[in-house]
Simulated scan of single mutants.
Amino acid sequence: MEPLGRVLPKDQTSLAYGVPSAAPGTIFVLTVAGGISVGPRQGHAILFGRNRPEVHVCVGEDDQRVSRTHGQIAFQAGQWWVSTTGRLPIRLPKVQWLFPDEAAVPLAAGYTPLFVQGSSGREHLLEVYVTGESGTRPVSRHQDPTQPPRVWQLSPEEKLALTVVGQRYLLHELHPLPLSWRLAADQLAELQPAAGWTAKRVEHLVAGVRNRLSRAGVPALTRQEVGEPVGNALNDNLFTELLLSTTLVPADVDVLDE
């Protein structure tokens, strides 16, 4: 394979730490087997896969589930685009999968980890970094105050109902699902016998929180966004947001033991 750009040094650390100053749009691609940096030029295409002699960046060299040429990153219309050309999909951030024959996905400026699927559950990391308009690495902010997550305000009854419905998420179950409204109402009635908990009340409270967060800009909390069949997707997305924002934390399930 003819050189396409500049070979990264053997001691190149993770691209997550940033990259050397470069022209805007320059891309850096790195695996444990090495990497390259390439300038933004129409038609440039970086091939990656298992067959070292035939690709620009080797990934999964010892794994036969990785295709010889598993994918490419091409510069088109002023942007870098990644596509899958091998047999198995590539996993992008936010659990997005890119399958063979699907349209290429644009890469944003900054750091993007890509995961090439291998055998026996292995995933091979392909690090990508596209320099932004400044062409420099991110500025270190060692002493800057930490930006806190946006914690959503819940009423006491909303928080209790959500804790009960979402207890499997808080307990770190492998594939958690929300409790049914009836089962949640039964548990809430045990905790608060005089509070008049019913399945309809639990459903109404959870739907109210979901709609409130949706209006505030949290995505994938409405049927229109998710599409049919909805199943548990709306509440699953709701609990993902509540945990990532630390609105609910594992210690909240202690109330179930009282």
Rank of each mutant, 00 (worst) to 15 (best):
M1I: 12
E2W: 05
P3W: 02
L8G: 04
D11K: 05
Q12T: 14
S14I: 10
A16F: 06
G18A: 03
P24G: 01
T26D: 05
L30P: 05
T31V: 01
T31L: 02
G34Q: 10
G34I: 11
I36C: 09
P40Q: 11
R41Q: 10
R41D: 14
I46F: 00
L47A: 11
L47R: 05
F48M: 00
P53E: 09
H56Q: 14
V59T: 02
D62A: 02
D62Q: 06
R65C: 03
V66I: 14
V66S: 07
S67N: 09
Q72G: 12
Q76L: 08
Q79Y: 02
S83R: 10
T84M: 05
G86F: 02
G86Y: 04
R87L: 12
R87E: 15
P89Y: 13
I90M: 15
L92E: 13
P93Y: 02
F99K: 12
P100S: 06
P100V: 04
A103G: 09
V105C: 07
L107H: 01
A108K: 03
Y111R: 02
P113T: 04
V116P: 12
S119V: 13
S120N: 12
G121I: 08
R122A: 09
R122G: 08
L125E: 10
V128W: 05
G132T: 09
G135N: 04
T136A: 09
R137K: 05
P138H: 01
P138Q: 02
Q143I: 04
D144Y: 08
D144M: 06
P148S: 10
P149C: 07
W152A: 15
L154C: 13
S155V: 04
P156H: 01
E158R: 01
T163G: 01
V164T: 08
V165E: 14
Q167F: 00
S180F: 10
W181G: 09
A185L: 12
A185R: 08
Q187R: 06
A189M: 11
A194F: 06
G196Q: 06
W197A: 03
T198S: 14
R201H: 15
R210P: 13
R212W: 09
R215H: 07
R215K: 05
Q224N: 06
A233G: 05
L234H: 03
L234I: 11
N237A: 11
L238H: 07
T247G: 08
V249T: 14
A251C: 12
V253G: 05
D254S: 06
L256G: 07
D257A: 08
